[in-house]
Design a protein around this nucleic acid. Structure first.
Lengths: 270, 270
DNA sequence: TAGTGGTCTAGACCACCTC
DNA sequence: AGGTGGTCTAGACCACTAC
């Protein structure tokens, strides 16, 4: 049953929490302790309103806190549901390994190996380079570039978007970069066949809340951040591409392996 | 001036946006286009209420959307302010380079080099290993471990928390791991001196909304995610430590360098 | 003291889902 | 039809900041 629990500050004074926080704290505790399990429904707003002796609006404030924490989600007509957490791991340090042959691209391979069904849509554009990209490709901001855009799904759930920019000078050497639609052997492999091999990557990883556009493309509700992964690929002479991948933060984790990990595989841990 | 702008869906139908979304969209557009710059104040709720012909509560709903996106923040008695964005970059692929001598630890060095003032508090505990850590250290869940916890600040702004677990068998070889307070030469260097050298790392990076406890420690307002960086360090024989670092997502970016990046430094880009 | 955001209420109506 | 959440209002009082 609900208890009116105030917080004791470290200086010993009682700190009265507002009612909507008490509601959120109580429900969060119950979710954490398994009273409401993943995927199950919470009581309705009016039930909670009665239980906490608060107006419906106050209960809604509390619930919206939990939504903002990514703990629960709501749908009209259905109610509030405890979010499930299922993550897909992506090994970024061997993502573009060309040493073993693969039919499709690295993404499809990874997803299929995990027993999931990949799906993607492609778009190719000629654009002018925004400053963020231009700095990384070492070209003038506003110069022309090819943008290959990819929207990826796993089991029909939107998973990530990927935008790769190639500088104009590279497109002259590899004209197929402007082809709409997928390049069967993968663009990295195609470029390698032309003598342009990527021998180094600079990766940058950041997290933030999605823009409305990102939330729309990835069908993300509130309380879920995005992981932004920027990879700049270098040949011996110059940067040759810059890829910005936007992941749903609740569904993805990135892994890097550095150095000698021979001690890892001896005894397979979960 | 405010215009009533509804959205045109791709199927051609008009989609009436609720009023609080119109408020959020209008303000977001104005922030993006520079009408309100970083660090400046927005008009008050009652001003906006008049401008949009909406009740104060409706305006608040719109503003709370923008707060949830991390675009603005509010403080009682002051008003709403457009968030500043200033990121600290952390190079994770050379974070623990032991090849050049350093007086303090890698963190202090990095921060000082950036012209900022580092500060940290330490705590050492004997704990039982939670499952997540135990899997990575290849020890039984619930077995004993040393936890070295570190709370880090930059210019007195809470920056990150770091919790490193060492398995019990390692502590017997390196008893100073249980010393409260910092180990001057760094724990990695101390262990290397005992013949336990970390020759490989497995890194995992995830993003999510902070728990209330994390939000408290890092003084994060709503709309800011955390970056969770889990690094497991391996010696030739076995995993020797597991470090979980929790960063404020709005202040940090992680970088990895992979392979040959000699083409990068030729012409320094910003 | 005046102005700001923070909390809370009671009630209205709408949109969506299930039966 | 009945229950769920989504939107919106009008007004009250409180807590904090500035002057």
């Amino acid at each position: 049953m609900f208890q009116q629990v105030d917080c004791v500050r470290h200086d010993g004074f009682m700190d009265k929490q507002p009612k909507y926080r008490q509601v959120a704290d109580a429900l969060r505790r119950e979710i954490d302790s398994g009273v409401y399990e993943s995927g199950t429904r919470l009581p309705s707003e009016s039930d909670l309103s009665a239980r906490f002796a608060a107006s419906r609006n106050t209960v809604r404030s509390g619930l919206s806190l939990l939504v903002g924490e990514g703990l629960i989600s709501s749908s009209q007509g259905l109610g509030y549901e405890v979010r499930r957490h299922e993550v897909f791991e992506l090994n970024a340090s061997r993502f573009e390994d060309l040493s073993f042959p693969q039919s499709g691209d690295a993404y499809s391979t990874d997803v299929t190996n995990a027993g999931r069904r990949p799906h993607q849509t492609f778009r190719v554009e000629m654009t002018t380079t925004p400053e963020y990209i231009a700095n990384r490709l070492k070209v003038a901001a506003g110069s022309r570039a090819v943008l290959r855009f990819c929207h990826r799904f796993v089991d029909d759930v939107p998973w990530s978007t990927q935008a790769t920019h190639y500088p104009e000078w590279l497109v002259e050497k590899g004209p197929r970069l402007t082809e709409p639609g997928d390049i069967a052997e993968g663009t990295t492999r195609y470029l390698a066949g032309l003598g342009i091999e990527q021998i180094g990557y600079a990766d940058e990883i950041a997290a933030r809340m999605p823009t409305p556009e990102e939330a729309r493309l990835l069908e993300m509700g509130p309380g879920v951040p995005v992981l932004i992964w920027t990879r700049t690929g270098y040949s011996q002479e110059a940067p040759v591409r810059c890829t910005i991948t936007t992941f749903r933060g609740d569904l993805n984790r990135m892994n890097y392996e550095i150095g000698d990990l021979s001690a890892r595989s001896e005894n397979e841990a979960q």
